[in-house]
Amino acid sequence: MSEFVQFFFFLLTLIGVGVIVSTKNVVHAAYALALVLVSLAGIYVLLNAELLAIVQILLYAGGVVILLVFGVMMTRRGSEDVLVSESKNSILALALSLAIFSLLVYVFSEATFESFESTITSDQVREIGVSFLTNHIVAFELIAFVLLVALVGASYLAKMSSND
């Protein structure tokens, strides 16, 4: 049963990646990205990383994909189809990505796992919260600051100036 669930989420991820790589329509690629992100959240649950799965759905699938689709809707000329032209580089890009893929697969195939059991059993949300405020407090405060700067910067950059 657990293998069937793993196989299902892997298949969904592969379908999503296949659509992103092969489509010419940017909006379809954004929808396929949402599929990839949600199925990755399912894989994180299988890897016993609960809070990461929830944050992935909340921020990635519920935030980044919407931002991207809004970006597509606001940057198109008239009513033409949202095409991309990939005639120049696609063979070179394919060769390069295949080379990187084979290098990574070769390195990963040498990996041996002695024991892959998960020894985390407790309330993960509580432990991560405590760890944010004790072990990783500097990173936590810096991330909050970066978020504030990004929020102010993005809203300033994107506002319409008065003589446009």
């Binding site: 592969l14 790589v21 954004a30 990205l33 991309v84 394919l94 390069l96 990505s97 990187i100």
Partner: peptide, 24 residues
């Protein structure tokens, strides 16, 4: 799977011309 995601990401970044596609 992680290697596959990484190499498809590189393929998309290099070969697509639309800015949103590169962000994807």
């Amino acid at each position: 799977l992680s290697a596959l995601l990484f190499s498809s990401g590189i393929f998309v970044v290099i070969s697509k011309r639309n800015v949103i596609f590169v962000l994807i």
